[in-house]
């Protein structure tokens, strides 16, 4: 993968912007904190010190989960768009998020205590994403039209929405409340102690992506050519869906469903980089996805006193016009 000077400038700029956004994010909250308080909160933590507590339990986990979710969803979107050869594909549109939501709903609303634990919710979200991912993969073997596949994804979303509504109708008030809170999504509930497991899953998912870089580059030129070159298409598909399920399930488990990032960011990176090289796209989506969500969340924190906006509403507010632009651009 030869990197041109222009690309190098692009990556360096995005990297610098990300660093800037991270600093902005860390200091965007209502309580004023210093660098020393951040450092002490990591290495010399005193639970009685409110400033340190805010730094350790709020600002740092919120920043990390925003980066992980942004990067993870953007990379998942990139994989789905290449796999289904469709720029409008993404974990949210294809219904992979819905799979996670359905399994989490079943876990929370059926009352089994294991499924109501942290690990239970993560496992449910991952398992749900995997089931729906492979279901879509199976259908894509028979349905060649990418529009039809997107429609099926949307229908899966509606179908699971209907099942969830039915489950809500028969569940107890407390179970219903727990699920409603989860569906609202939030970047604020992640704890410092959960960061190792989040980062572990994230690193596993992204590491698996590196094995997909070359096969995906080949897949872009067509499935027949991929087979001629001796690559196993089935394996590429299974690996892509597994990575998407891990990254989407991880994000959905810790933040709830987040819309549009998975669709909008990969398209933006393709437009900006004008490349089909998945090595570059992977790096760009990692950086740009993290930048997008960190910046969005910083803005949310800065305007919170005037307009309180949930993260999902904010990403939709930016993402939806972006998608319309992409569609219009393609129509031209």
């Amino acid at each position: 993968m030869a990197i041109k000077k222009r690309d190098l400038i692009f990556f360096f700029t995005i990297f610098l912007l990300l660093i800037g956004a991270m600093v902005l994010h860390l200091f965007s909250g209502q309580l004023k904190l210093t660098w020393n308080e951040f450092i002490d909160s990591m290495f010399n933590f005193d639970v009685k010190n409110t400033q340190q507590l805010i730094a350790r339990e709020f600002r740092i986990p919120r920043l990390i989960i925003a980066m992980v979710a942004g990067a993870g969803l953007a990379v998942s979107g990139m994989l789905m768009q290449t796999l289904f050869n469709n720029p409008l594909a993404g974990p949210y549109v294809l219904g992979i998020n819905s799979g996670s939501s359905l399994l989490v709903a079943l876990s929370l609303l059926t009352g089994f205590s294991f499924f109501q634990s942290d690990i239970g919710i993560i496992a449910s979200a991952l398992f749900g994403a995997l089931i729906f991912g492979f279901l879509l993969l199976g259908l894509s073997m028979y349905i060649k039209s990418s529009i039809s596949l997107l429609l099926i994804g949307l229908m899966l979303g509606s179908f699971t929405g209907a099942i969830i509504t039915a489950l809500q109708a028969i569940s107890s008030a407390q179970e219903l409340k727990a699920f409603t809170i989860w569906t609202m999504g939030s970047l604020q509930q992640t704890q410092f102690d959960q960061l190792p497991i989040i980062l572990l899953f994230f690193v596993i998912g992204i590491s698996m992506c590196f094995f997909l870089v070359k096969p995906l580059d080949v897949l872009v030129i067509g499935e027949k050519n991929t087979e001629i070159l001796g690559l196993n298409i089935k394996r590429i598909r299974i690996l892509s869906i597994t990575v998407t399920a891990i990254l989407t399930g991880l994000t959905t488990a810790f933040c709830g469903p987040i819309a549009f990032v998975g669709m909008a960011v990969p398209n933006l990176t393709r437009i900006l980089l004008k490349t089909q090289s998945h090595g570059k796209l992977l790096l760009a989506n990692l950086l740009f996805g993290a930048l997008f969500l960190v910046l969005s969340d910083s803005i949310i924190q800065l305007i919170e006193s005037f307009i309180p906006l949930p993260i999902n509403a904010f990403t939709s507010l930016i993402g939806a016009p972006l998608v319309i632009l992409i569609v219009l651009k393609r129509l031209k």
Partner: peptide
């Protein structure tokens, strides 16, 4: 308000009322 603001301002409040759940365990879960 953000959870962070509420905690910063009310960490030492003597009483927490109307937490919306029937047990401490359920509060902690949510």
């Amino acid at each position: 308000m953000s959870l962070e603001r509420v905690l910063a301002e009310n960490r030492k409040a003597e009483f927490w009322l109307n937490a919306g759940f029937s047990t401490l365990e359920l509060i902690q879960k949510s």
